[in-house]
Design a protein around this nucleic acid. Structure first.
Lengths: 236, 236
DNA sequence: CAGACCACTGTGGTCTGACCACACAGTAGC
DNA sequence: GCTACTGTGTGGTCAGACCACAGTGGTCTG
């Protein structure tokens, strides 16, 4: 721990404390950067660095101009921050792809089982399901919708922490799915299989068959991974 | 999307690209801030804001002075960043405590089941287990060790993504556990129960009894939560 | 009087230049 | 040979200035 804490950390802690004390709520404005700087006795650049970290975490949104929508507003939408964090950690090789897949398996088997037991609204997922049945889609477009479909299942669970985690994994999942595309010998056959599996998963959920839903999504995820990584030993 | 991307986002994307291209690897130094600024044609303050975001994500570590250990070094340790993100999102009410607990249940039941099937080294967890048997511990100290114990189980699984997620949950878990402390009528009894449960979980893992380990840790987590939140309807 | 127009004001975004603290590297002195 | 010191390059911070932007409120024009 630094003996002299950096100025921007002081600003960060100050904002965190105001959040914990309930003085700042979602939707509120942060004080203007210049005011915060004089109030805390630091330079404006230090305030900006702290604000930048909060923006990176998806905690606030900044907007130039004037009026009610301008300034730094607390939004507390963790998905964006989680996505960026995961994407950069994968880029910096902090997260192996195998661990991403294993985490997907762990989360998603539980998510669909939970949905089967106490189903939430599956509208968003079913919409994506229909969109994926469009034959005009390119493989890349299909895989993008595919990744969104899996996030939609997490959203349907209503658990915001799990949703943020799946959203964070989404970009990583999409990129490795895309990277594996050349290894797919017969895309048409794979496409049909993926579609069938998706419909099967949703059917199992609506039928309240938790065990089947878990098994199906497990096979769905491992199936694509083994197809695109044939030479590797499966991580599970 | 802003038509004119902010300068610090440009810097961030540049660094991300170098990471993806393998030009920057863990352990490498980032170029000096001044050099990066002139290279990208932006001001040093913009570079600093991008660096600050990366530091917040736990991607780099900065150090003043000169020599090999000074400057910004890529470390790719996601736990710190994930912890900070979760802590702030909880503070900003982006994550309900009930969802934290549900996510713990989801992750940890799977983790211990995986450990029972293919056990990794439990040394760290067993060390914490022994430390928690010290009768001189205050409740707060015990709960801090308790939270570390659960993270240690995740670490033993070898899955870095799950470990980072559990590390992110740790502070949130510890704080709600601490907040619930006054609701515990007989701390001595609760302490004995928690200890017994911990030992039971490790025993089930070493006995390769996945089902028992899952059941025990489920009861362990829900038990403390219901004891400290008696009036609420359980979220599971 | 109604509408269009426009300067004003406060916000974040950026850059420049300066200075500090720090830690290592090389050198001068002993 | 060892010690002490100076030099150098790094991040950390600050102050000041300017820009772009978007509301606000007034003024002008029909």
């Amino acid at each position: 721990m630094p003996v002299v804490p950096r100025a921007w950390e002081l600003v960060l802690r100050h904002i965190e404390r105001e959040l914990l004390d309930g003085k700042l709520l979602p939707g509120d404005h942060l004080p203007p950067e210049r005011a915060l700087a004089t109030e805390l006795g630091v330079g404006r650049s230090s305030v900006r660095e702290a604000v930048r970290v909060l923006e990176g975490f998806g905690l606030i949104r900044t907007q130039t101009g004037s009026g009610p929508s301008a300034g730094a507003i607390i939004i507390a939408t963790p998905q964006g921050g989680m996505s960026a964090l995961m994407r950069l950690q994968v880029a910096a090789q902090g997260f192996p792809v195998a661990d991403i897949v294993k985490t997907r398996l762990l989360l998603e088997t539980q998510i669909v089982a939970g949905l089967a037991d106490a189903a939430g609204p599956l509208d968003a997922a079913e919409l994506l399901l229909a969109a994926m049945d469009d034959d005009a889609l390119t493989p890349a477009e299909f895989l993008a919708l595919d990744a969104q479909f899996h996030v939609a299942l997490a959203e349907a669970s209503g658990n915001q922490v799990v949703t943020a985690m799946m959203a964070g994994l989404r970009e990583a999942v999409e990129s490795y799915a895309l990277a594996g595309l050349p290894a797919v010998a017969d895309w048409g056959a794979t496409l049909r299989r993926l579609r069938t599996e998706h419909h099967g998963i949703v059917a199992a959920i609506t039928a309240s068959d938790a065990a089947a839903a878990s098994t199906l999504i497990h096979a769905h995820i491992t199936g694509y991974y083994t197809e695109t990584h044939p030479q590797e030993t499966p991580p599970w």
